[in-house]
Design a protein around this nucleic acid. Structure first.
Lengths: 155, 155
DNA sequence: AAGAAATACTTCGATAATCAAAATATATGA
DNA sequence: TCATATATTTTGATTATCGAAGTATTTCTT
């Protein structure tokens, strides 16, 4: 019994340090593999903008800004850059001519899908070799974490 | 059987999207809760520098720079700032007077521990309510991911 | 329906992080 | 000793970001 407690303690330290390691490195690795890819003219932050715009529904500039925690003015310059590089399109809304609707160009959709593929590979490796039961525990863990972070956010 | 396959597919999508959600938000949440804390004069990047310096062994400026993927020149200015704010100390190595050894001040050690606490809470919530078996599956998952990222890095 | 207030975005001016290249100080090897 | 290598800093330029002011458009109030 005592031994088991020790084992759990050790496991916790291991999980904690692996978790920190993963968080500290994912961003940088995404950034680096983007630089080595065909799409080396955009940064990871640009990628997040593209991801927030996404494929299927028109979002306004301010919606996207809120999603990725940028001020409207920073959003304007970020979009300028992505428009100029051919990833994003600006259109004025017809119903409210103040708002700018954002959409991806063909090139934007290609890089969006590539990035989704990256995430998908990551998730596949995360789940590699799990039984159904194990997978459901992992699912619960990641859901826990998501809820915890949400809770902090709304504090 | 078919139904089960579908369930697994759905689970995968859920895990994937939760994983992405967590990655996209952790950094921002850490940043935000740092701003609200007693240590609102440092950014998350500063925190990562402090974390890389750590408590127990003297590291040189260039070692720390490599750990957090900064150029030496950027490291110099980053340290200047942290020295000026009272978190970090610079000392010249005695055996090689070119190298700068970095260490944390009392204040630096306090914020270092606070940040470790944050990670610990996160890991605790990640593991909340898991049995020993489930915990070991989760441990394996996070280890998988870590290895996967390492593999990409060395490509 | 005119004028006031609100909203969505952009422009402007300032600041901070970062980089690459040159400079400085020190150490190592021929 | 002198040339070369190494660790860090300084310099000059670029880029991301912000907040405040500006512009265009819509909505609200009376």
């Amino acid at each position: 019994m005592k031994k088991m407690t020790e084992a759990i303690t050790t496991d916790f330290e291991k999980i904690n340090s692996d978790l920190v390691d993963v968080f500290n490195n994912v961003m940088w690795i995404e950034e680096a593999s983007l630089k080595r890819s065909y799409f080396s003219d955009i940064t990871l932050k640009d990628m997040h903008t593209i991801d927030a715009i996404s494929m299927y529904d028109e979002k306004s500039a301010s919606q996207v800004a809120r999603m990725i925690h940028l001020t409207p003015s920073a959003m304007t310059t970020a979009i300028d850059k992505l428009v100029q590089k051919g990833y994003v399109e600006r259109r004025r809304s017809r119903t409210d001519r103040r708002v700018v609707k954002l959409g991806l160009t063909h090139k934007g959709r290609v890089v969006y899908r590539a990035h989704q593929g990256f995430h998908r590979d990551m998730a596949h490796n995360f789940m590699a070799g799990m039984t159904t039961e194990e997978a459901s525990a992992v699912q619960r863990a990641i859901h826990n974490l998501k809820s915890y972070l949400r809770a902090i956010l709304s504090k």
